[in-house]
Design a binder for these strands. Structure first.
Lengths: 214, 214
DNA sequence: CGCACAATTGATCACGATCAAAACCAGTGG
DNA sequence: CCACTGGTTTTGATCGTGATCAATTGTGCG
C-alpha cells in the first residue's frame, strides 16, 4: 500500500500508520462480534468480562472461554472469527485493525512478545478448557475453573466471580443444578461465601486448588 | 542487493538462511519433545501419527491432540512446549529452527498463510478438543471425533483409524471400556468395520456425522 | 405489583465409571 | 512349532454420579 517501498523491501521500526479506537461500550448480553464474521480487527478488553460462545450444528450452546481486562481477542486465525464474543458484564474495549497488527508484527524487534503476547489470550482459552473438561468429577472441574479464574483476575486473596452460574455450567459442560450443588459443597466447607444469591466470593483459594487436583 | 538496506529496512522475499532437517525417524512410544522443554524448533510431520500428552499435577494422563502428516507442531507460545509429543505409529519428521521461522514471518508477503498456516495445527487441536469434550454423551463424542479424524486424513470414503482405542479414550476423557462399547454399537449399525481387533475401518462417514450431532 | 429469569432444592433415572475376568494378538525364547 | 508374556481389546455385573424432571424461591426491572 505504501508507494515509496516498491517491490521487495519493507520498513523496519516504522511508526504504526493506524490508531486504536478507544472506549467502546457494550452492555451485558450484547455481542462484540459473531462467529463466522470476517476477522477485521482485534479487540482489547479494557474493563468488564467477555465470554466466547459456540453453537454446534444442533443449536447446542457452549461457552468456550472467559476474557478479562488486558486480554486481546478476535485474532484472525483462518480469516474468520471462530466464536461469538458476548459481554457478560458492562464492557469497555478498544479495537485495532488487523492490517495494523500485522504491520506491527513486521516492524517489531521481539516477535515473541508482540505476536504471542496478543494471540495468547485466545490460545490459552481453548487450551485451558480442553484440559479442564478432561478432568472427570464435577467438583474437580469446578475447582480447577475457580483456581484459574482467581489466578487470572488476581484480586488478592478474595475474588468475586463476575459471571453467572449458568455461564459456568455452559463452560464446564455441566448443568446449572450440578454447578449450584457444587457451590453448596464449597460453601459448607468454607471455601466460598455466597452473598446475595448472585454474588459468590472465593475466600479460600488454597482449599480450592487442593480439591482441583482431586 | 544486500548492502543497500541499511538500518531501518529489511528485504522482502529473501531466501531463508537456515535449512530444514530432513527425515528424522522415531518409533511408536518415543517422544519428539517434552512438556516444559524450551521450544527451539518446529516439527513438521512427514509421515505417521503423533499424539500430544499432558500430565496433570496428580499424574493423570490426558491425550490432548492427534497430529498427521503436514501438521507443524512445537510452536513456541510462551517459549516452552506445552505438551509432550509422542509417536503413535512409526513417524518421520523434519525440523526447522524457530529463528528461521520468525525470519520467514518477517520476509513473507502473506502473513496469514505463513503464520497461521503453520501455527494452525496446534490451535485447531485444543480448539477442537475443547468443543468435543463439551458434547455430552459418549457416542456423540466418539462420532464427532471420528468425523474429525476422517476429514483430516481424507483417505476418501474409507478410513482406517491409526491410533489404539486407549489413546482415543484418553483423548475423549472416557474409559477404554466405554470406547470399545461405542465402537460395538457403530459396528452393529454398520458404520464401522472391525477387522483384526486392532484395526477399525470407518465405512460410513455420513452415518457417523449424523450421530455426531445427536 | 407482576413479569422474566437465575438460583435452589428434591426425587428419580440413565449413563458411564469401576471392578473383575476372559479373549485376542504380537513378540520372545525354548 | 508351541509355550509364555505383556498389552490391548472385549464382555459382563455392579455402583455412583450427574442429568433430568419438577417445583419453589430469590432477584432485578419495567
Amino acid at each position: 500500500m505504501e508507494p515509496e517501498f516498491a517491490g521487495n523491501v519493507i520498513p523496519l521500526h516504522r511508526e504504526p500508520t493506524c490508531r486504536r479506537t478507544l472506549a467502546v461500550h457494550v452492555s451485558p448480553g450484547q455481542a462484540l462480534f459473531w462467529e463466522g464474521d470476517e476477522a477485521r480487527q482485534l479487540f482489547r478488553i479494557e474493563a468488564g468480562v467477555v465470554r466466547s460462545v459456540n453453537f454446534s450444528s444442533e443449536g447446542e450452546r457452549q461457552v468456550t472461554g472467559f476474557f478479562f481486562p488486558g486480554d486481546v481477542i478476535g485474532v484472525p486465525l483462518g480469516g474468520r472469527c471462530r466464536y461469538t464474543a458476548e459481554a457478560v458484564t458492562e464492557v469497555r474495549y478498544s479495537t485495532q485493525g488487523v492490517e495494523c497488527w500485522t504491520e506491527e508484527l513486521r516492524c517489531t524487534q521481539n516477535l515473541d512478545d508482540t505476536l504471542f503476547g496478543t494471540v495468547r489470550s485466545e490460545l490459552e482459552a481453548s487450551y485451558t478448557r480442553s484440559l479442564l473438561l478432561g478432568r472427570q468429577g464435577a467438583l474437580a472441574r469446578m475447582c480447577s475453573f475457580l483456581a484459574d479464574v482467581c489466578a487470572r483476575l488476581g484480586h488478592g486473596d478474595e475474588t468475586v466471580l463476575p459471571m453467572p452460574q449458568t455461564d459456568i455450567a455452559a463452560y464446564l459442560a455441566l448443568t446449572p443444578e450440578t454447578v449450584c450443588r457444587s457451590f453448596r459443597k464449597l460453601k459448607d466447607i468454607g471455601a466460598v461465601r455466597i452473598e446475595k444469591h448472585d454474588c459468590i466470593r472465593v475466600v479460600d483459594p488454597g482449599r480450592i486448588m487442593g480439591l482441583a487436583s482431586h
